[in-house]
């Protein structure tokens, strides 16, 4: 018998009588001022979140806040004057020197500050992880209250890769001292646009 078959046979033999799957629809959190809650939470976990008026507003904030002399990439055509458009077909290793990546978030979660990204908006899977700094643009109407609401939105989505990202990469492995910028971005900024 293959390991597959013997493992499955043992599992079938040993599993207890069926225990019902619980309903999870009762987890509701009041949905007032999601933008304010999101911004407070994201700032608390070490990120920077701003409510912005327009793409031009974002551009001027980026020029003021980042070293745009270095390599800046984006998947958003509207930012083509400040960022290189990132190709989905090149070797992912070639993004090693990216200073700033600006991408669009699919949704943002107020209870924990995380944004949901799929590979379509990332350009390439590696981009939000390898760049030194990460900026994500999210529409205000795409802020949801909890993770339950987030999964309700993405329940049947057909992605190859997707991820929640909830701030700059961090570690506290050395004496519990918080250090931002472990292996991923040193900073993360979220722009919330109407």
């Amino acid at each position: 018998m293959s390991s597959r078959d013997s493992i499955l046979a043992a599992v079938l033999k040993n599993q207890p009588p069926i225990s019902a799957l619980p309903d999870i629809s009762m987890f509701k959190v009041p949905e007032s001022d999601l933008r304010g809650k999101y911004i407070d939470m994201f700032n608390e976990i070490g990120g920077f979140a701003y409510a912005v008026e327009s793409m031009d507003d974002i551009k001027s904030r980026i020029k003021a806040g980042f070293d745009t002399e270095k390599r800046v990439i984006s998947t958003l055509p509207a930012l083509s004057d400040i960022a290189e458009f990132c190709s989905s077909s090149v070797d992912p290793h070639s993004f090693e020197d990216v200073e700033l990546a600006i991408i669009e978030g699919r949704l943002a979660v107020a209870e924990n500050g995380a944004v949901w990204l799929t590979e379509e908006v990332m350009g390439q899977r590696i981009i939000p992880y390898i760049s030194q700094h990460l900026a994500v643009i999210v529409r205000e109407s795409d802020i949801v209250s909890t993770m339950h609401d987030a999964y309700a939105r993405i329940a049947s989505e057909d992605y190859g890769f997707g991820g929640f990202i909830g701030g700059p990469s961090k570690t506290a492995d050395i004496e519990q001292a918080l250090v931002l910028g472990a292996h991923g971005p040193l900073s993360m900024t979220v722009y919330i646009i109407k």
Binding site: I45, F161, G184
Partner: peptide, 15 residues
């Protein structure tokens, strides 16, 4: 005591 891990990556298909 963190609201969510910074990265929660959902792997479904190879690139």
């Amino acid at each position: 005591g963190q609201p969510i891990t910074i990265y929660s990556s959902h792997f479904r298909k190879p690139r």
